[in-house]
Design a protein around this nucleic acid. Structure first.
Length: 484
RNA sequence: GGUCCUAUCGUCUAGCCUGGCCAAGGACGUUGGGCUUUCAUCCCAAAAACCCGGGUUCGAAUCCCGGUAGGACCGCCA
Protein backbone atom coordinates (compact mmCIF):
# COMPACT_ATOMS: atom_id res chain seq x y z
CA UNK A 1 0.00 0.00 0.00
CA UNK A 2 1.34 3.44 -0.88
CA UNK A 3 2.95 4.76 2.24
CA UNK A 4 4.15 8.14 1.02
CA UNK A 5 3.11 10.38 3.83
CA UNK A 6 1.79 13.51 2.24
CA UNK A 7 2.64 16.61 4.11
CA UNK A 8 -0.24 18.94 4.34
CA UNK A 9 0.36 21.61 1.76
CA UNK A 10 0.12 25.27 2.51
CA UNK A 11 -2.62 25.58 -0.05
CA UNK A 12 -6.11 25.68 1.37
CA UNK A 13 -8.24 23.04 -0.30
CA UNK A 14 -11.78 22.30 0.79
CA UNK A 15 -14.51 20.19 -0.66
CA UNK A 16 -18.26 19.76 -0.77
CA UNK A 17 -19.12 16.08 -1.17
CA UNK A 18 -22.85 15.57 -1.76
CA UNK A 19 -24.26 12.17 -2.41
CA UNK A 20 -26.63 12.33 -5.38
CA UNK A 21 -29.51 10.55 -3.72
CA UNK A 22 -31.82 13.53 -3.73
CA UNK A 23 -32.02 17.22 -4.51
CA UNK A 24 -29.66 19.77 -3.03
CA UNK A 25 -31.11 20.92 0.28
CA UNK A 26 -30.68 24.13 2.21
CA UNK A 27 -28.47 22.35 4.72
CA UNK A 28 -26.15 21.03 2.05
CA UNK A 29 -26.15 24.33 0.23
CA UNK A 30 -25.18 26.14 3.40
CA UNK A 31 -22.29 23.72 3.94
CA UNK A 32 -21.20 24.27 0.35
CA UNK A 33 -21.44 28.02 0.84
CA UNK A 34 -19.28 28.05 3.96
CA UNK A 35 -16.68 25.89 2.24
CA UNK A 36 -16.73 28.17 -0.77
CA UNK A 37 -16.46 31.32 1.33
CA UNK A 38 -13.58 29.89 3.30
CA UNK A 39 -11.75 28.80 0.15
CA UNK A 40 -12.18 32.09 -1.68
CA UNK A 41 -11.20 34.13 1.33
CA UNK A 42 -7.97 32.20 1.60
CA UNK A 43 -7.28 32.06 -2.11
CA UNK A 44 -7.73 28.34 -1.90
CA UNK A 45 -9.50 25.72 -3.98
CA UNK A 46 -13.06 24.58 -3.63
CA UNK A 47 -13.72 21.07 -4.89
CA UNK A 48 -17.00 19.42 -5.74
CA UNK A 49 -16.84 15.69 -5.27
CA UNK A 50 -19.77 13.40 -5.95
CA UNK A 51 -20.10 10.64 -3.39
CA UNK A 52 -21.97 8.06 -5.37
CA UNK A 53 -20.70 4.85 -3.85
CA UNK A 54 -24.27 3.82 -3.08
CA UNK A 55 -25.23 2.57 -6.51
CA UNK A 56 -28.83 1.82 -5.67
CA UNK A 57 -29.69 5.27 -4.41
CA UNK A 58 -27.45 7.47 -6.54
CA UNK A 59 -28.93 8.91 -9.71
CA UNK A 60 -27.35 10.87 -12.51
CA UNK A 61 -30.21 13.37 -12.56
CA UNK A 62 -29.46 14.34 -8.98
CA UNK A 63 -25.85 14.99 -9.89
CA UNK A 64 -27.09 17.37 -12.53
CA UNK A 65 -29.55 19.07 -10.22
CA UNK A 66 -26.91 19.58 -7.55
CA UNK A 67 -24.55 21.09 -10.11
CA UNK A 68 -27.26 23.33 -11.54
CA UNK A 69 -28.50 24.67 -8.24
CA UNK A 70 -25.02 25.25 -6.85
CA UNK A 71 -24.17 27.25 -9.94
CA UNK A 72 -27.42 29.13 -9.73
CA UNK A 73 -26.51 30.15 -6.20
CA UNK A 74 -23.20 31.43 -7.47
CA UNK A 75 -21.14 28.80 -5.71
CA UNK A 76 -18.48 27.70 -8.16
CA UNK A 77 -15.78 25.09 -7.85
CA UNK A 78 -12.23 24.89 -9.14
CA UNK A 79 -12.35 21.16 -9.62
CA UNK A 80 -15.30 18.86 -9.98
CA UNK A 81 -17.03 16.28 -12.15
CA UNK A 82 -17.48 18.86 -14.90
CA UNK A 83 -14.13 20.62 -14.50
CA UNK A 84 -11.08 18.45 -14.64
CA UNK A 85 -8.24 18.93 -12.21
CA UNK A 86 -5.13 17.01 -11.38
CA UNK A 87 -6.83 15.18 -8.54
CA UNK A 88 -9.65 13.66 -10.57
CA UNK A 89 -11.83 11.91 -11.25
CA UNK A 90 -14.30 13.65 -8.99
CA UNK A 91 -16.94 10.99 -8.79
CA UNK A 92 -16.28 8.22 -6.36
CA UNK A 93 -17.79 5.65 -8.72
CA UNK A 94 -14.87 6.39 -11.03
CA UNK A 95 -12.22 5.98 -8.36
CA UNK A 96 -12.78 2.34 -7.51
CA UNK A 97 -9.25 1.27 -8.41
CA UNK A 98 -7.86 3.75 -5.91
CA UNK A 99 -10.00 2.42 -3.08
CA UNK A 100 -9.19 -1.16 -3.98
CA UNK A 101 -5.50 -0.48 -3.60
CA UNK A 102 -5.93 0.89 -0.08
CA UNK A 103 -8.37 -1.84 0.84
CA UNK A 104 -5.87 -4.49 -0.10
CA UNK A 105 -3.20 -2.74 1.90
CA UNK A 106 -5.40 -2.65 4.99
CA UNK A 107 -6.24 -6.32 4.53
CA UNK A 108 -2.68 -7.53 4.18
CA UNK A 109 -1.60 -5.52 7.18
CA UNK A 110 -4.45 -7.13 9.08
CA UNK A 111 -5.88 -3.72 9.92
CA UNK A 112 -9.06 -4.82 8.24
CA UNK A 113 -10.62 -8.23 7.84
CA UNK A 114 -13.40 -10.03 6.07
CA UNK A 115 -16.60 -10.56 8.01
CA UNK A 116 -19.24 -13.11 7.12
CA UNK A 117 -21.84 -12.28 9.73
CA UNK A 118 -25.32 -12.19 8.21
CA UNK A 119 -27.08 -8.85 8.35
CA UNK A 120 -30.05 -10.39 10.14
CA UNK A 121 -27.78 -11.88 12.75
CA UNK A 122 -26.08 -8.52 13.25
CA UNK A 123 -29.42 -6.81 13.59
CA UNK A 124 -30.55 -9.34 16.16
CA UNK A 125 -27.41 -8.83 18.20
CA UNK A 126 -27.85 -5.08 17.97
CA UNK A 127 -31.39 -5.31 19.28
CA UNK A 128 -30.28 -7.58 22.05
CA UNK A 129 -27.52 -5.16 23.10
CA UNK A 130 -29.92 -2.23 23.00
CA UNK A 131 -32.42 -4.03 25.19
CA UNK A 132 -29.69 -4.82 27.68
CA UNK A 133 -28.86 -1.15 27.72
CA UNK A 134 -25.34 -1.51 26.37
CA UNK A 135 -23.83 0.31 23.43
CA UNK A 136 -24.65 -1.53 20.25
CA UNK A 137 -21.34 -2.36 18.66
CA UNK A 138 -19.86 -5.14 16.60
CA UNK A 139 -18.33 -7.77 18.85
CA UNK A 140 -15.43 -8.68 16.60
CA UNK A 141 -16.67 -12.18 15.93
CA UNK A 142 -14.95 -12.52 12.57
CA UNK A 143 -11.64 -10.98 13.62
CA UNK A 144 -8.60 -13.16 12.95
CA UNK A 145 -10.67 -15.85 11.31
CA UNK A 146 -8.87 -15.51 8.02
CA UNK A 147 -11.98 -15.39 5.87
CA UNK A 148 -11.35 -14.42 2.27
CA UNK A 149 -14.75 -13.11 1.36
CA UNK A 150 -17.59 -11.17 2.91
CA UNK A 151 -17.74 -7.51 3.85
CA UNK A 152 -14.57 -5.74 4.90
CA UNK A 153 -14.39 -4.51 8.44
CA UNK A 154 -11.91 -2.06 9.86
CA UNK A 155 -10.34 -2.89 13.18
CA UNK A 156 -11.04 -0.05 15.58
CA UNK A 157 -8.11 0.54 17.90
CA UNK A 158 -9.06 1.00 21.52
CA UNK A 159 -7.57 4.35 22.33
CA UNK A 160 -8.47 7.83 23.35
CA UNK A 161 -8.58 10.41 20.60
CA UNK A 162 -8.67 14.14 20.47
CA UNK A 163 -8.73 16.74 17.78
CA UNK A 164 -9.18 20.47 17.58
CA UNK A 165 -12.29 21.60 15.82
CA UNK A 166 -12.20 25.08 14.37
CA UNK A 167 -15.66 25.93 15.60
CA UNK A 168 -15.94 23.79 18.70
CA UNK A 169 -12.46 23.68 20.10
CA UNK A 170 -10.96 20.50 21.51
CA UNK A 171 -13.06 17.38 21.17
CA UNK A 172 -12.23 14.12 22.92
CA UNK A 173 -13.46 10.63 22.25
CA UNK A 174 -12.88 7.16 23.50
CA UNK A 175 -12.60 4.92 20.45
CA UNK A 176 -12.88 1.88 22.67
CA UNK A 177 -16.60 2.48 22.67
CA UNK A 178 -16.75 2.00 18.93
CA UNK A 179 -17.19 -1.33 17.20
CA UNK A 180 -15.30 -2.42 14.08
CA UNK A 181 -16.95 -0.73 11.16
CA UNK A 182 -17.71 -2.05 7.71
CA UNK A 183 -15.66 0.00 5.26
CA UNK A 184 -16.54 -1.87 2.08
CA UNK A 185 -19.03 -4.43 0.87
CA UNK A 186 -16.16 -5.95 -1.09
CA UNK A 187 -13.05 -4.80 -2.94
CA UNK A 188 -15.13 -3.02 -5.58
CA UNK A 189 -17.69 -1.45 -3.26
CA UNK A 190 -16.21 0.93 -0.71
CA UNK A 191 -18.40 2.62 1.85
CA UNK A 192 -18.61 6.19 3.06
CA UNK A 193 -16.16 6.42 5.98
CA UNK A 194 -13.41 4.76 4.05
CA UNK A 195 -13.97 6.48 0.72
CA UNK A 196 -14.19 9.93 2.23
CA UNK A 197 -10.94 9.48 4.11
CA UNK A 198 -9.08 8.16 1.08
CA UNK A 199 -10.37 10.92 -1.17
CA UNK A 200 -9.68 13.74 1.23
CA UNK A 201 -6.13 12.47 1.41
CA UNK A 202 -5.68 11.83 -2.29
CA UNK A 203 -7.19 15.20 -3.14
CA UNK A 204 -5.00 16.93 -0.57
CA UNK A 205 -7.90 18.46 1.28
CA UNK A 206 -6.64 20.77 4.00
CA UNK A 207 -9.88 21.54 5.85
CA UNK A 208 -12.96 19.42 6.28
CA UNK A 209 -15.89 21.75 6.88
CA UNK A 210 -19.12 19.81 7.29
CA UNK A 211 -22.29 19.47 9.30
CA UNK A 212 -22.35 18.60 12.96
CA UNK A 213 -23.94 15.26 12.18
CA UNK A 214 -20.43 14.13 11.26
CA UNK A 215 -18.88 15.10 14.56
CA UNK A 216 -19.33 11.66 16.06
CA UNK A 217 -18.09 10.08 12.83
CA UNK A 218 -14.80 11.90 13.05
CA UNK A 219 -13.01 9.50 15.42
CA UNK A 220 -13.64 6.57 13.07
CA UNK A 221 -12.24 8.56 10.22
CA UNK A 222 -9.21 9.66 12.19
CA UNK A 223 -8.48 6.04 13.05
CA UNK A 224 -8.73 5.16 9.38
CA UNK A 225 -6.33 7.96 8.51
CA UNK A 226 -3.87 6.76 11.08
CA UNK A 227 -4.10 3.18 9.83
CA UNK A 228 -3.25 4.26 6.31
CA UNK A 229 -0.61 6.76 7.31
CA UNK A 230 -2.48 9.82 6.17
CA UNK A 231 -2.16 13.31 7.54
CA UNK A 232 -5.15 14.60 9.47
CA UNK A 233 -7.08 17.45 7.90
CA UNK A 234 -8.28 20.32 10.05
CA UNK A 235 -11.92 19.89 11.03
CA UNK A 236 -14.70 22.40 11.42
CA UNK A 237 -18.17 21.16 12.26
CA UNK A 238 -21.00 23.49 11.41
CA UNK A 239 -24.16 23.78 13.50
CA UNK A 240 -27.18 21.99 12.14
CA UNK A 241 -30.07 23.72 10.45
CA UNK A 242 -33.20 22.86 12.38
CA UNK A 243 -36.91 22.55 11.72
CA UNK A 244 -39.16 24.87 13.75
CA UNK A 245 -39.53 22.01 16.25
CA UNK A 246 -35.72 22.04 16.61
CA UNK A 247 -35.24 18.63 15.06
CA UNK A 248 -32.59 18.20 12.38
CA UNK A 249 -33.80 19.49 9.05
CA UNK A 250 -34.05 16.30 7.14
CA UNK A 251 -34.33 15.73 3.45
CA UNK A 252 -37.89 14.65 3.81
CA UNK A 253 -39.05 17.51 5.98
CA UNK A 254 -41.05 19.77 3.71
CA UNK A 255 -39.81 21.53 0.66
CA UNK A 256 -36.28 22.32 1.65
CA UNK A 257 -34.85 21.67 -1.80
CA UNK A 258 -32.98 24.62 -3.23
CA UNK A 259 -34.74 23.96 -6.52
CA UNK A 260 -38.10 24.55 -4.86
CA UNK A 261 -37.05 27.98 -3.67
CA UNK A 262 -35.62 28.60 -7.09
CA UNK A 263 -38.91 27.73 -8.77
CA UNK A 264 -40.95 29.77 -6.32
CA UNK A 265 -39.07 32.89 -7.17
CA UNK A 266 -36.47 33.35 -4.49
CA UNK A 267 -33.35 35.10 -5.68
CA UNK A 268 -29.98 33.41 -5.28
CA UNK A 269 -28.54 36.52 -3.63
CA UNK A 270 -31.26 36.36 -1.00
CA UNK A 271 -30.81 32.66 -0.33
CA UNK A 272 -27.06 33.05 -0.04
CA UNK A 273 -27.39 36.05 2.27
CA UNK A 274 -29.95 34.21 4.35
CA UNK A 275 -27.97 30.98 4.55
CA UNK A 276 -24.83 32.81 5.59
CA UNK A 277 -26.66 34.09 8.63
CA UNK A 278 -27.73 30.61 9.63
CA UNK A 279 -24.99 29.99 12.12
CA UNK A 280 -22.77 32.89 11.25
CA UNK A 281 -22.82 36.57 12.06
CA UNK A 282 -20.37 39.32 11.19
CA UNK A 283 -20.52 40.81 14.67
CA UNK A 284 -21.64 44.13 13.24
CA UNK A 285 -25.11 45.41 12.53
CA UNK A 286 -24.85 44.97 8.80
CA UNK A 287 -27.36 42.40 7.60
CA UNK A 288 -27.34 42.57 3.84
CA UNK A 289 -24.27 41.00 2.28
CA UNK A 290 -23.35 40.24 -1.30
CA UNK A 291 -21.28 37.16 -2.07
CA UNK A 292 -18.10 39.20 -2.38
CA UNK A 293 -18.77 40.96 0.91
CA UNK A 294 -19.31 37.58 2.51
CA UNK A 295 -16.01 36.35 1.15
CA UNK A 296 -14.32 39.31 2.79
CA UNK A 297 -16.12 39.12 6.12
CA UNK A 298 -16.68 35.43 6.68
CA UNK A 299 -14.82 33.70 9.46
CA UNK A 300 -15.13 30.22 10.89
CA UNK A 301 -14.33 31.61 14.30
CA UNK A 302 -17.58 33.53 14.26
CA UNK A 303 -19.63 30.48 13.47
CA UNK A 304 -22.22 29.64 16.10
CA UNK A 305 -22.08 26.32 17.93
CA UNK A 306 -25.78 25.73 18.50
CA UNK A 307 -28.20 24.69 15.78
CA UNK A 308 -30.20 27.32 13.93
CA UNK A 309 -33.90 27.12 13.17
CA UNK A 310 -34.76 27.85 9.58
CA UNK A 311 -36.93 30.96 9.64
CA UNK A 312 -38.82 31.38 6.38
CA UNK A 313 -40.11 34.85 7.29
CA UNK A 314 -36.62 36.12 7.39
CA UNK A 315 -35.89 34.63 3.99
CA UNK A 316 -39.01 36.34 2.64
CA UNK A 317 -37.89 39.64 4.03
CA UNK A 318 -34.40 39.28 2.60
CA UNK A 319 -35.82 38.26 -0.74
CA UNK A 320 -38.00 41.37 -0.76
CA UNK A 321 -34.98 43.53 -0.13
CA UNK A 322 -33.17 42.08 -3.14
CA UNK A 323 -36.26 42.29 -5.34
CA UNK A 324 -36.65 45.97 -4.57
CA UNK A 325 -33.02 46.53 -5.43
CA UNK A 326 -33.39 45.18 -8.97
CA UNK A 327 -33.53 47.53 -11.92
CA UNK A 328 -36.82 47.44 -13.85
CA UNK A 329 -35.25 45.67 -16.80
CA UNK A 330 -33.64 42.97 -14.68
CA UNK A 331 -36.72 42.43 -12.61
CA UNK A 332 -38.88 42.08 -15.68
CA UNK A 333 -36.58 39.45 -17.08
CA UNK A 334 -36.79 37.51 -13.85
CA UNK A 335 -40.59 37.81 -13.74
CA UNK A 336 -41.33 36.82 -17.33
CA UNK A 337 -41.73 33.20 -16.32
CA UNK A 338 -44.54 34.07 -13.95
CA UNK A 339 -46.51 36.30 -16.30
CA UNK A 340 -49.50 35.04 -18.31
CA UNK A 341 -48.95 33.91 -21.88
CA UNK A 342 -50.53 37.02 -23.40
CA UNK A 343 -47.98 39.29 -21.79
CA UNK A 344 -46.36 39.18 -25.21
CA UNK A 345 -49.07 41.53 -26.45
CA UNK A 346 -47.59 44.21 -24.25
CA UNK A 347 -44.52 46.26 -24.96
CA UNK A 348 -41.46 45.76 -22.88
CA UNK A 349 -41.79 49.30 -21.61
CA UNK A 350 -45.32 48.67 -20.42
CA UNK A 351 -44.36 45.41 -18.78
CA UNK A 352 -41.56 47.12 -16.93
CA UNK A 353 -44.02 49.70 -15.65
CA UNK A 354 -46.40 46.99 -14.52
CA UNK A 355 -43.68 45.24 -12.57
CA UNK A 356 -42.47 48.47 -11.07
CA UNK A 357 -45.98 49.24 -9.94
CA UNK A 358 -46.18 46.07 -7.85
CA UNK A 359 -42.54 45.66 -6.89
CA UNK A 360 -42.87 46.70 -3.26
CA UNK A 361 -45.58 44.13 -2.73
CA UNK A 362 -43.52 41.16 -3.90
CA UNK A 363 -41.97 38.75 -1.44
CA UNK A 364 -41.01 36.37 -4.20
CA UNK A 365 -41.05 36.52 -7.96
CA UNK A 366 -44.00 34.18 -8.26
CA UNK A 367 -46.15 36.75 -6.43
CA UNK A 368 -46.10 38.79 -9.60
CA UNK A 369 -48.73 36.58 -11.20
CA UNK A 370 -51.50 37.49 -8.82
CA UNK A 371 -50.30 41.01 -8.23
CA UNK A 372 -50.51 41.95 -11.89
CA UNK A 373 -53.28 39.75 -13.26
CA UNK A 374 -55.78 42.61 -13.56
CA UNK A 375 -53.53 44.46 -16.00
CA UNK A 376 -53.86 41.61 -18.46
CA UNK A 377 -57.52 40.75 -18.08
CA UNK A 378 -60.08 41.90 -20.62
CA UNK A 379 -62.90 41.90 -18.11
CA UNK A 380 -62.64 42.32 -14.36
CA UNK A 381 -64.72 40.19 -12.04
CA UNK A 382 -65.49 41.59 -8.61
CA UNK A 383 -68.33 42.16 -6.20
CA UNK A 384 -69.98 45.53 -6.77
CA UNK A 385 -70.07 46.14 -3.02
CA UNK A 386 -66.32 46.42 -3.14
CA UNK A 387 -66.74 49.74 -4.94
CA UNK A 388 -68.16 51.50 -1.90
CA UNK A 389 -65.82 53.49 0.33
CA UNK A 390 -66.79 53.37 3.99
CA UNK A 391 -70.51 54.25 4.22
CA UNK A 392 -71.18 55.06 0.59
CA UNK A 393 -74.46 53.95 -0.92
CA UNK A 394 -74.94 52.82 -4.53
CA UNK A 395 -76.08 56.21 -5.70
CA UNK A 396 -73.03 57.97 -4.40
CA UNK A 397 -70.71 55.31 -5.77
CA UNK A 398 -72.21 55.94 -9.17
CA UNK A 399 -71.77 59.68 -8.83
CA UNK A 400 -68.19 59.22 -7.70
CA UNK A 401 -67.35 57.00 -10.66
CA UNK A 402 -69.05 59.33 -13.13
CA UNK A 403 -67.04 62.19 -11.71
CA UNK A 404 -63.84 60.24 -12.28
CA UNK A 405 -64.96 59.23 -15.73
CA UNK A 406 -65.45 62.80 -16.81
CA UNK A 407 -62.26 63.97 -15.25
CA UNK A 408 -60.34 61.28 -17.12
CA UNK A 409 -61.97 62.35 -20.35
CA UNK A 410 -60.39 65.77 -20.10
CA UNK A 411 -56.90 64.26 -20.27
CA UNK A 412 -55.19 63.38 -23.50
CA UNK A 413 -52.22 61.63 -22.01
CA UNK A 414 -52.25 59.77 -18.72
CA UNK A 415 -49.30 60.57 -16.55
CA UNK A 416 -49.51 59.60 -12.92
CA UNK A 417 -48.26 62.89 -11.51
CA UNK A 418 -50.55 65.04 -13.67
CA UNK A 419 -53.57 62.91 -12.87
CA UNK A 420 -52.80 62.99 -9.19
CA UNK A 421 -52.78 66.77 -9.05
CA UNK A 422 -56.13 67.18 -10.71
CA UNK A 423 -57.82 64.28 -8.97
CA UNK A 424 -56.73 65.36 -5.52
CA UNK A 425 -58.48 68.69 -6.17
CA UNK A 426 -61.49 66.90 -7.58
CA UNK A 427 -61.65 64.69 -4.49
CA UNK A 428 -61.77 67.79 -2.31
CA UNK A 429 -64.55 69.27 -4.39
CA UNK A 430 -66.51 66.06 -4.24
CA UNK A 431 -66.15 65.87 -0.47
CA UNK A 432 -67.22 69.47 -0.08
CA UNK A 433 -70.35 68.91 -2.14
CA UNK A 434 -71.21 65.72 -0.26
CA UNK A 435 -70.35 67.05 3.15
CA UNK A 436 -67.52 64.59 3.77
CA UNK A 437 -64.30 65.49 5.54
CA UNK A 438 -62.17 67.30 2.97
CA UNK A 439 -59.07 65.19 3.46
CA UNK A 440 -60.84 61.86 3.07
CA UNK A 441 -60.05 61.30 -0.59
CA UNK A 442 -61.36 57.77 -0.48
CA UNK A 443 -64.83 58.87 -1.57
CA UNK A 444 -63.53 59.60 -4.99
CA UNK A 445 -60.40 57.49 -5.16
CA UNK A 446 -61.44 54.18 -3.67
CA UNK A 447 -64.27 53.42 -6.11
CA UNK A 448 -61.96 54.46 -8.90
CA UNK A 449 -59.15 52.17 -7.82
CA UNK A 450 -61.51 49.24 -7.44
CA UNK A 451 -63.01 49.94 -10.84
CA UNK A 452 -59.56 49.78 -12.38
CA UNK A 453 -58.16 46.84 -10.45
CA UNK A 454 -61.14 44.84 -9.22
CA UNK A 455 -59.19 44.25 -6.03
CA UNK A 456 -59.38 44.99 -2.35
CA UNK A 457 -55.71 45.92 -2.39
CA UNK A 458 -53.61 47.05 -5.30
CA UNK A 459 -51.39 49.69 -6.78
CA UNK A 460 -52.82 53.21 -6.83
CA UNK A 461 -55.36 54.21 -9.51
CA UNK A 462 -53.19 56.73 -11.35
CA UNK A 463 -50.34 54.33 -11.92
CA UNK A 464 -52.85 51.82 -13.17
CA UNK A 465 -54.45 54.39 -15.45
CA UNK A 466 -51.11 55.41 -16.87
CA UNK A 467 -50.35 51.82 -17.75
CA UNK A 468 -53.82 50.99 -19.02
CA UNK A 469 -54.13 54.10 -21.20
CA UNK A 470 -57.17 56.16 -21.96
CA UNK A 471 -59.35 53.65 -23.74
CA UNK A 472 -59.10 50.82 -21.23
CA UNK A 473 -59.30 53.13 -18.25
CA UNK A 474 -62.52 54.71 -19.44
CA UNK A 475 -63.91 51.35 -20.36
CA UNK A 476 -63.27 49.90 -16.91
CA UNK A 477 -64.88 52.86 -15.17
CA UNK A 478 -67.88 52.60 -17.45
CA UNK A 479 -68.37 48.93 -16.68
CA UNK A 480 -68.15 49.73 -12.98
CA UNK A 481 -70.84 52.35 -13.42
CA UNK A 482 -72.98 49.80 -15.20
CA UNK A 483 -72.53 47.43 -12.31
CA UNK A 484 -74.14 49.65 -9.69
C1' G B 1 -29.35 3.28 26.78
C1' G B 2 -24.04 4.97 25.56
C1' U B 3 -20.86 8.74 23.46
C1' C B 4 -20.37 13.60 21.76
C1' C B 5 -22.25 18.52 21.12
C1' U B 6 -25.22 22.69 22.51
C1' A B 7 -27.94 26.30 25.79
C1' U B 8 -29.11 35.05 25.41
C1' C B 9 -36.05 38.01 23.20
C1' G B 10 -41.09 33.53 19.42
C1' U B 11 -36.80 33.14 15.53
C1' C B 12 -31.54 34.47 13.65
C1' U B 13 -28.04 36.59 16.71
C1' A B 14 -24.22 40.72 19.36
C1' G B 15 -21.88 40.47 24.01
C1' C B 16 -18.80 35.46 26.74
C1' C B 17 -12.20 33.91 25.26
C1' U B 18 -9.57 39.16 27.82
C1' G B 19 -15.52 39.46 34.50
C1' G B 20 -17.49 45.92 35.71
C1' C B 21 -18.82 50.28 29.65
C1' C B 22 -25.18 45.15 29.74
C1' A B 23 -31.02 47.98 34.44
C1' A B 24 -28.24 42.96 27.71
C1' G B 25 -27.62 45.70 21.47
C1' G B 26 -29.37 44.62 16.23
C1' A B 27 -32.53 42.04 12.65
C1' C B 28 -37.02 39.09 11.25
C1' G B 29 -41.77 38.47 13.18
C1' U B 30 -45.63 40.72 16.46
C1' U B 31 -48.31 45.15 18.36
C1' G B 32 -49.24 50.48 18.16
C1' G B 33 -48.48 55.05 15.48
C1' G B 34 -47.04 58.24 11.13
C1' C B 35 -47.34 58.68 5.68
C1' U B 36 -51.51 57.09 2.57
C1' U B 37 -57.90 56.09 -1.22
C1' U B 38 -56.43 50.35 -0.11
C1' C B 39 -52.45 46.93 0.40
C1' A B 40 -47.30 47.10 0.25
C1' U B 41 -42.89 50.08 0.71
C1' C B 42 -40.84 53.79 3.97
C1' C B 43 -40.40 56.26 8.96
C1' C B 44 -41.20 56.23 14.43
C1' A B 45 -42.34 53.58 18.89
C1' A B 46 -43.43 49.37 22.12
C1' A B 47 -43.65 44.45 24.15
C1' A B 48 -40.12 40.52 24.17
C1' A B 49 -34.29 36.86 26.46
C1' C B 50 -29.05 35.84 29.85
C1' C B 51 -32.30 27.35 31.27
C1' C B 52 -31.97 26.17 36.82
C1' G B 53 -28.94 25.70 41.30
C1' G B 54 -24.47 26.30 43.74
C1' G B 55 -19.43 28.33 43.88
C1' U B 56 -15.22 31.98 42.83
C1' U B 57 -15.21 37.43 43.17
C1' C B 58 -16.03 43.89 45.75
C1' G B 59 -18.67 42.57 41.15
C1' A B 60 -20.88 37.10 36.54
C1' A B 61 -24.77 36.76 30.69
C1' U B 62 -19.46 36.37 30.90
C1' C B 63 -15.05 31.94 34.97
C1' C B 64 -15.83 26.85 37.73
C1' C B 65 -19.00 22.71 39.33
C1' G B 66 -23.67 20.17 39.31
C1' G B 67 -28.40 19.57 37.39
C1' U B 68 -32.07 20.12 33.52
C1' A B 69 -33.46 20.50 28.54
C1' G B 70 -32.60 19.98 23.34
C1' G B 71 -29.85 17.87 19.34
C1' A B 72 -26.43 14.62 16.61
C1' C B 73 -24.34 9.89 16.18
C1' C B 74 -24.35 4.69 17.51
C1' G B 75 -26.15 1.14 9.22
C1' C B 76 -23.40 -3.94 4.51
C1' C B 77 -26.78 5.21 3.95
C1' A B 78 -23.98 9.45 3.36
Amino acid sequence: MPKKLKVQTKKIRVRFPPSPTGPLHIGGARTALFNYLFAKQNKGDFILRIEDTDKERSRLEWVQEIIDELKWLGIEWNEGPDIDGKFGPYKQSQRLDIYEKYLEGLLTENKAYYCICAPEELEARRQEQMSRGVVPKYDGKCRDKGYTSGVIRFRILEKKLKFDDLVRGRIEFDAGLLGDIVIAKNLENPLYHFAVVVDDYEMEISHVIRGEEHLSNTPRQILLQEAMGFYQPIYAHLPLILNPDKSKMSKRAGDMAVSDYHKNGYLPEAIVNFMAFLGWNPGTEKEIFSMSELIKEFSLGKVQKGGAVFNIQRLDYTNGVYIREKTPAKLLKLCLLYLPEDHKNFSEKTLEKIIEAVKTRMKKLSDVTELTDFFFKEKLEYDKNLLAWQTMGDGEVKESLERSYHTFKTFKKYITKDLEGVFFKEAENFNREKGHPIENRGYLLWPLRVALSGKQASTGPFEIAEILGKEKTLQRIQSAIDKV
